[in-house]
Amino acid sequence: MNSLGVLLDIPSVRLALVALVLGSVALPIVGVFIVGLDIMPVRFAMMHVALLGIAIGLLTGLDPLLCALVLCGLTGGALTPLARSATGLSGAMGLLMTLAVAAALLVLSLSGVNANGAFELLWGSILATRPADVLALAVLAVVVPLLYVLRRRDLALLLHDRELALCSGVAVERLTLILLVVVAVAIASAIRLTGALLVDALTLLPALAARRVGRSLPAMIRWSVIFGLVFNVGGFFISLILDFPPGPTLVLLGGVCTLLLHALPAVSAPRRKAISR
């Protein structure tokens, strides 16, 4: 057992905590967007695109995180036409994913960098958080809630049904573009915290838990942020106290809580009938 007080005096631990709190504001909302747009394959492909961005950064000597952010943002934007049908997006993602990884491996071998080095970056570690990562998350923590507040009505309609949104005066193409770019950039910045394989802990788990208790978009957004904070900060403290690796601990805490929420009878929504998904 470690003493929390002592650990919290370590600068890297404090920086990690700040990053997690900031991430808990923006990333769960992004998770709600991902669930609502039904674009889970997109975020998976984005992790691979982020790897390509990191590889390009290593080749050119530019900042790998910045390259990953920019490349993911551009790719997200370029996907907008495919979002007209959900199948269009998920179908293309396998291709994008494979191409991105192949390109990343090619770039890595050209740059003479050991591929493991790049994968290490992709693996990420909360305690290796740099001020630049915190800055990226801070920007997201402002931009994402702002996007939600300013476009609440449009988002609720688009996430519910694209055609209903089209017929309600929502600028669907533009909003989809913005959402895809935000999702892509958020994934790229979250990768630094938990690593690519565990990004879901920060985005999807709080959103999935929130879907269980929230009956409307505003309620889901609120709950997702609450769950995000509980999973991330709670998991982080547990990992510190028990001296576990933080990433997996966060994910397991979030995963177990989400599972429990879905297993328990719907207490908070007594009138709700079973909805087949």
């Binding site: 669930v35 609502g36 039904d38 609720a156 309609l157 996430l159 519910h160 049904d161 055609e163 209903l164 929230g214 009956r215 409307s216 978009l217 889901m220 909805i275």
Partner: peptide, 9 residues
């Protein structure tokens, strides 16, 4: 009429 993927009141 869509019941939707996502809750709408």
């Amino acid at each position: 009429q869509t019941a939707g993927r996502f809750p709408l009141l």
